[in-house]
Simulated assay, not measured.
Amino acid sequence: MEDNVKALFEQNYYGLVELSRRLVGSNETGEDIVQDVFVKLLASDIALPGGEQPAKSYLYTMVKNASLSHLRKIKVIHNYRQSNPLIEISDEDILEDIIYAEVINQLYASIRNLPEASRNIFNMAYFEEKSNSEVAESYGISINTVKTQKRRAMASLKKMLFPVLRSIKILLF
């Protein structure tokens, strides 16, 4: 069971954190909530539903519920309603947040599947916001090689994410 939970953690972590972050408004709190969900899952005798999709759905539900519980505990909803009395969190908003979180999860999964050199250059350039010359200097390669690797990484990501984006387009339109 522990290996199964570890695999689910690695496959869904970023999407679950993104869902929680969008609900509670804090990335650090979102990470804590997701980690707490997995700790509770490992500590309990709860059997996960069979199959990848039911298990993923179960995890999203657990994170959603834990996030909403967190909001109730710190009375953010009360403060939010005072400043925006007509706005409430609806099921449609939560569904939109889940879809967005799943896209983020797919993006991180696709990045993990890039060749190591492309992935490292991509991470430095886009996540660490390093310039092409800084990346080139760090790896001892030419700026043109950096540009080529970034272009290849983007092309690979577009190819890997096309089915996800097409599905979203079909779903929404």
Results as ranks from 00 to 15, higher is better:
residue 39 V to Y: 06
residue 51 G to S: 12
residue 88 E to P: 00
residue 33 I to N: 00
residue 24 V to N: 04
residue 45 D to K: 10
residue 98 I to M: 15
residue 137 E to W: 02
residue 32 D to K: 03
residue 51 G to K: 10
residue 131 S to H: 04
residue 56 K to E: 14
residue 134 E to C: 04
residue 2 E to V: 07
residue 170 I to F: 01
residue 2 E to F: 08
residue 57 S to M: 04
residue 142 S to P: 08
residue 150 K to D: 06
residue 10 E to G: 09
residue 154 M to T: 13
residue 155 A to S: 15
residue 126 Y to Q: 06
residue 141 I to F: 04
residue 97 D to Y: 14
residue 125 A to G: 00
residue 13 Y to C: 08
residue 99 I to K: 14
residue 123 N to C: 07
residue 143 I to T: 15
residue 16 L to Y: 06
residue 163 P to L: 11
residue 56 K to P: 04
residue 64 K to H: 14
residue 150 K to Y: 07
residue 83 S to P: 00
residue 170 I to S: 01
residue 73 K to I: 01
residue 53 Q to F: 00
residue 101 A to I: 02
residue 41 L to M: 09
residue 104 I to W: 03
residue 94 I to A: 12
residue 89 I to V: 14
residue 59 L to S: 00
residue 25 G to I: 10
residue 54 P to S: 03
residue 172 L to Y: 10
residue 118 S to K: 05
residue 18 E to K: 15
residue 100 Y to T: 13
residue 76 V to Y: 13
residue 106 Q to V: 08
residue 171 L to H: 08
residue 34 V to L: 00
residue 137 E to I: 00
residue 160 M to V: 03
residue 24 V to R: 06
residue 158 K to A: 13
residue 157 L to R: 07
residue 90 S to H: 09
residue 140 G to K: 10
residue 115 P to Q: 09
residue 68 L to E: 09
residue 44 S to T: 03
residue 128 E to N: 06
residue 72 R to C: 01
residue 117 A to D: 11
residue 50 G to I: 02
residue 14 Y to F: 13
residue 154 M to G: 01
residue 53 Q to R: 07
residue 169 K to P: 00
residue 78 H to D: 15
residue 30 G to M: 03
residue 85 P to M: 12
residue 8 L to K: 05
residue 162 F to D: 13
residue 75 K to N: 15
residue 151 R to N: 14
residue 52 E to F: 04
residue 156 S to I: 04
residue 69 S to H: 14
residue 169 K to T: 08
residue 136 A to V: 07
residue 67 S to W: 05
residue 35 Q to P: 00
residue 108 Y to T: 10
residue 89 I to Y: 05
residue 48 L to Y: 04
residue 145 T to Q: 14
residue 47 A to G: 06
residue 131 S to V: 05
residue 72 R to L: 11
residue 52 E to Y: 09
residue 39 V to C: 05
residue 99 I to D: 13
residue 115 P to R: 08
residue 146 V to G: 02
residue 80 Y to E: 05
residue 148 T to N: 14
residue 98 I to R: 02
residue 62 M to T: 06
residue 105 N to G: 15
residue 158 K to C: 10
residue 96 E to Y: 13
residue 110 S to I: 10
residue 18 E to I: 03
residue 36 D to H: 03
residue 147 K to D: 11
residue 128 E to Y: 04
residue 162 F to Q: 15
residue 159 K to D: 13
residue 84 N to K: 13
residue 132 N to M: 04
residue 14 Y to G: 01
residue 2 E to H: 10
residue 29 T to K: 10
residue 44 S to W: 03
residue 43 A to C: 08
residue 43 A to Y: 03
residue 43 A to W: 01
residue 90 S to M: 08
residue 58 Y to H: 12
residue 65 N to W: 13
residue 172 L to S: 08
